[in-house]
């Protein structure tokens, strides 16, 4: 067998093994651990959204927490006023995330590179402050409580047990992962990588590149919004802290750890970041920030290519002929 084929087979096997472990997890670990894994999956979905912009399109962002928050609050509002059916919340939250991205995106689209990072950081921070101030919508710093247990599909009983909520979150995550994987293999996905690679040339070839970048921004907004809805379903509570600066920074860190452009890298990076914060953070109580900062410094200096780049040169081709 050719090395390429071996690699493809190995990747399938690893993927299947990971899936089996994820499915068996509620029988293997306790309720606290399973809720941690739920949080990891939500965070991985957010990281995939950041990766779509930062890794694939080449637009480094610290603002996806804003659309995550829009989705989380939309999910909470829909659940208390309209429907406790998860997919309904999910679709509306994704729509709200996309809409918020469509409104704010044009400002960010003025810039590229680090200036883009600067503007998205401001957008994220403004959303955070807004969440604390708009008492009528978000219940301010008290947080939005009273979110009912999520109903995965109409006619099924609400999911109260952590293990079952976990399955709902896992199903949504796999759906989102699959959709983004398709997107990256499509002509549109190739165009986004073209923006990162050489935007001027892409324009000369006939692409309205800003329109493509804005579309990517809206899709990433929808993804972050969907992740927000997953968060609401899992936590049944939303507070401004859920869309704080550290959330955006951690999501970007997860993508960098995973290696820019790699979806599985971003997911594993998300797991590492959440586990580090939740478990290691317990040992250095009260110094989560310190830990996070050290993690940033170490990653920047020691892992310039991230996890997916450790094993082999950065893979850029998704197309095989």
């Amino acid at each position: 067998m050719s090395p390429v084929l071996v690699r493809a087979v190995v990747r399938r096997l690893v993927g299947a093994a990971v899936l089996v472990v994820l499915l068996a997890l509620p029988w293997l670990v306790n309720a606290y651990a399973i809720s941690t894994v739920s949080r990891i999956l939500v965070f991985a979905a957010l990281a995939i959204s950041v990766n779509l912009l930062t890794g694939v399109t080449g637009l480094p962002t610290l603002g996806q927490s804003a659309y995550f928050g829009v989705g989380a609050y939309t999910g909470a509002i829909v659940s208390t006023t309209l429907s406790d059916v998860g997919p309904v919340q999910l679709v509306l939250a994704a729509g709200a995330g996309a809409l918020a991205a469509a409104v704010t995106g044009p400002v960010a689209m003025r810039a590229r590179g680090v200036a883009f990072l600067m503007i998205t950081l401001a957008i994220g921070e403004i959303a955070y402050v807004a969440a604390g101030r708009l008492d009528a919508v978000t219940y301010g710093t008290d947080g939005y409580s009273g979110v009912p247990a999520v109903v995965p599909l109409p006619g099924i009983a609400p999911l109260v047990i952590d293990g079952l909520v976990y399955y709902y979150v896992l199903a949504v995550f796999l759906l989102l992962y699959g959709l983004v994987a398709l997107l990256l293999r499509s002509p549109f996905g190739l165009a986004l990588r073209g923006i990162r690679d050489n935007e001027d040339r892409l324009r000369a070839v006939g692409y309205p590149t800003t329109a493509f970048a804005l579309a990517a921004y809206c899709i990433a907004g929808a993804l972050a919004g969907a992740a927000g809805s997953m968060w609401t379903s899992a936590q049944r509570f939303v507070a401004p802290g859920d869309l704080g600066f550290d959330v955006a920074a951690l999501a970007l860190l997860a993508v960098i750890i995973g290696g820019l452009g790699s979806m599985w890298g971003a997911s594993v990076g998300a797991a590492l970041v959440v586990l580090t914060r939740d478990y290691l953070g317990g040992y250095v109580a009260g110094h989560g920030l310190l830990l996070l900062g050290v993690l940033f410094v170490v990653v920047v200096y020691a892992m310039p290519r991230g996890l997916s780049g450790v094993r082999r040169p950065r893979r850029t081709s998704e197309v095989r002929a």
Binding site: V114, L290, L292, G293, V294, V299, P304
Partner: peptide, 27 residues
């Protein structure tokens, strides 16, 4: 030293330093 690696890495490094400093200042 990170200049050759790209401006994103530089920004992330300063972000890490900001987190560390914030923690130290609180301590």
């Amino acid at each position: 030293p990170l200049a050759a690696r790209g401006h994103l890495d530089q920004a992330l490094l300063t972000l890490g330093i900001a987190f560390i400093a914030a923690d130290v200042l609180v301590a």
